[in-house]
């Protein structure tokens, strides 16, 4: 089996899926795709360029708020609102990146820096009157509406949007990985000093990784805003959200293309399965899903730190393509 066949097979199944599955499985698949997408976006920074960001909720939140505010105030359709949303998030990312890289904030300290910025922004939005502050921001919902440009419609519309986004991000990540820039990232990830010595412009390459990653992530935020129609700073900018974003790529396999997708499938199904099972026994347990996520992360980091995908690819005899 080749990676290409596997990919096309999976894509065909996912395209056909809404025809045969019910509303709940569709909602779960939307979640799977959403986190696969965000995972691919985060993976560009950590998996490709070795930059550990624990503040990606910042870009989700900025993307969501910018696009939602433009739609609510000026009726700007989501697909157009996505452009300023991505610009704002990318500028934020570049700002944080420039500060962090210029001041040589590395490794875990860089992660702390990203957390600090995300938390800082969360508290700012909590106190910002015109976006509703801590009581949240809501998008008007009209039932029976179908307008793909404005991202207004039934769940199946969001399903296909999520699928297109994930497939698009996958293709983009794949071509980046094999580009000159992708090899520069790889060199920097393995050893920044050697990369610099071989003539790689470390600062620019890192900034490029941040720009790609934050822009992609903010589009995930636009999707979130129009899919859920509500956003609270406490949720959308939270550290818990940042952690949720990074779990799928770590569990699936850092720096791989299939990793975030596989990780998202495994985690979301595990999480939804646990919640469903507990609810079946009449126990609505807050935190149960996250405990499962934590255990999954623990097991992977201890047993298979390279992630599930490299292990699976070996079993399936798929080359380094994934």
């Amino acid at each position: 089996m080749t990676a290409r066949n596997l990919l096309l097979g999976l894509l065909a199944v996912l395209i056909a899926a809404p025809a045969v599955i019910g509303a709940y499985p569709l909602a779960v698949l939307i979640l799977v795709l959403h986190y696969a997408y965000l995972g691919i976006a985060w993976n560009v920074m950590m998996g490709f360029a070795g930059l550990l960001s624990l503040g990606h909720a910042l870009y989700v939140g900025l993307g969501a708020y910018v696009a939602a505010a433009l739609y609510a105030s000026f009726g700007l359709p989501a697909l157009l609102g996505a452009i300023p949303a991505a610009i704002v998030a990318t500028l934020a990312g570049l700002g944080i990146g420039a500060l962090g890289f210029r001041f040589r904030v590395n490794g875990v300290y860089f992660a702390l820096l990203t957390i600090a910025f995300a938390e800082f922004t969360r508290i700012l939005f909590d106190h910002m009157g015109w976006t509703g502050g801590s009581s949240g921001f809501f998008l008007p919902v009209e039932h029976g509406q179908l307008n793909p440009i404005a991202l207004r419609g039934p769940p199946v519309l969001f399903y296909y949007v999520a699928l297109v986004m994930t497939a698009g991000a996958f293709v983009l990540a794949r071509s980046l990985m094999r580009s000159r820039l992708g090899y520069a990232w790889l060199a920097i990830r393995e050893d920044p000093d050697s990369a610099a010595a071989s003539g790689v412009d470390v600062f620019r390459a890192r900034m490029a990784a941040v720009a790609v990653s934050s822009a992609l992530t903010s589009l995930g935020g636009v999707f979130y805003a129009f899919y859920y129609n509500n956003m609270y700073p406490e949720q959308i900018f939270s550290m818990a959200r940042s952690i949720e974003i990074i779990l799928a790529p770590i569990i699936g396999g850092l720096g791989t293309l299939f990793g975030p997708v596989l990780g998202s499938f495994v985690l979301t199904l595990l999480g939804e399965g646990t919640t469903g099972l507990l609810e079946h026994f009449g126990w609505a347990a807050p935190g149960a899903k996250q405990v499962i996520y934590g255990l999954a992360l623990l097991v992977i980091v201890m047993v298979q730190p390279a992630g599930l995908w490299p292990w699976l690819a070996k079993r399936l005899r798929i080359g380094r393509d994934g």
Partner: peptide, 23 residues
């Protein structure tokens, strides 16, 4: 082992403890 693997290990511990308490 690499710094980020240590970090993720303790991140996993923190997720489990935090949500265990919540549970």
């Amino acid at each position: 082992r690499p710094e980020h693997e240590q970090f993720m290990l303790l991140l996993a511990v923190s997720i489990i403890v935090l949500n265990g308490l919540l549970l």
